[in-house]
């Protein structure tokens, strides 16, 4: 339960951090909050030869809304800062609602959204929330920058689109479509555990009273966070009522690919998705203008 030895670098400049990663490649890991990486190192599941500690790179510790309403979250922004931000809770209630389900206050003190996304655990809440919010991720490397959609970032369990010289530097969440309602629900064995199933939904009622926008994303529902596009499409043009929610949930249950865990079989996970989705959709519909 003690980590293997490593070389520790604690740069203060972003450029230094990127140069170190370019130099060490796969042998190096970035360290932000350490709430996923350090346990893995304590178990020696992860044995990076080099740790590039980002905690002193002040430029990565930012959080703020831009003029067009996009929320920019730096790689070093702690969960606690996010969850305490009243403006985040007002403008992106889905994020605030799901944050309360992420582990415990002691973990959120140190843990970062960026680190969580890079860990890419398919059972984790935030990757699914990023799909539902259509977040874009800013990937930097020495002398280069690109953006990818959250939907293109997660490739499999603990696998992402990051190249070996890249860093997830910023998460960009566009404003919610005006008038939309959102909800996050999960079932976990204990408070703060990873979910056996979790659902994140965004809904909007059009001028004719029928659904004109729907997004559904689920965690613990496959090798990556899963979207359910067919289920979401089935809601369009429908009255936001229980029959439509049940029909969408029935489709979503077919779209996901839960892998099972020691806590829940795939069949049980599908069952949970079928129960949680209508509830979440009803809640989001209530909250939609």
């Amino acid at each position: 339960m003690k980590p293997a030895a490593f070389d520790w670098h604690a740069p203060t400049l972003l450029a230094e951090a990127l140069a170190l990663k370019a130099g060490h490649g796969e042998a190096a890991r970035f360290l932000a909050g350490g709430q996923s990486l350090v346990p893995a190192m304590n178990f020696r599941v992860a044995q990076p030869a080099v740790l590039i500690d980002l905690n002193r790179v002040a430029v990565l510790d930012h959080l703020g809304f831009e003029e067009d309403g996009t929320l920019a979250i730096g790689a070093l922004c702690r969960y606690r800062r996010l969850e305490r931000d009243a403006e985040v809770a007002r403008r992106l209630p889905l994020l605030a609602e799901a944050l309360a389900e992420v582990a415990h206050p002691q973990i959120r003190t140190r843990g970062t959204l960026g680190g969580n996304l890079c860990h890419a655990d398919p059972a984790s809440e935030m990757p699914a929330v990023m799909l539902a919010l259509e977040a874009r991720l800013v990937l930097r490397r020495a002398g280069g920058i690109r953006q990818v959609a959250a939907a293109e970032f997660f490739l499999g369990p603990l696998a992402t689109a990051l190249a070996e010289d890249e860093m997830l530097a910023e998460i960009r969440i566009p404003p919610l479509p005006p008038g939309s309602g959102t909800a996050f629900l999960e079932v976990a064995r204990r408070r703060g555990d990873y979910a056996m199933m979790g659902v994140a939904v965004v809904l909007r009622r059009g001028p004719d009273g029928r659904c004109d926008l729907a997004r559904i994303a689920l965690c613990s529902a496959g090798p990556t966070p899963m979207a359910a596009p067919r289920a979401a499409a089935a809601l369009l043009g429908q009255a936001l009522e229980p029959a439509a929610f049940a029909a969408a949930a029935a489709l979503a249950v077919q779209e996901i690919a839960p892998m099972g865990s020691v806590q829940a079989s795939p069949a049980y996970q599908r069952h949970l998705a079928g129960v949680l989705l209508p509830r979440a959709l009803a809640r989001a519909a209530e909250r939609a203008a």
């Binding site: 520790w8 346990p39 002691q106 973990i107 003190t109 140190r110």
Partner: peptide, 23 residues
């Protein structure tokens, strides 16, 4: 020693944190 039990919780700049998950 993997952040689950909370026995090692200390205050880090006044905030509760796991001492086993920081170097």
């Amino acid at each position: 020693e993997h952040g689950v039990c909370g026995a090692c919780t200390i205050l880090w700049d006044g905030e509760p944190a796991r001492a086993c998950l920081a170097f």
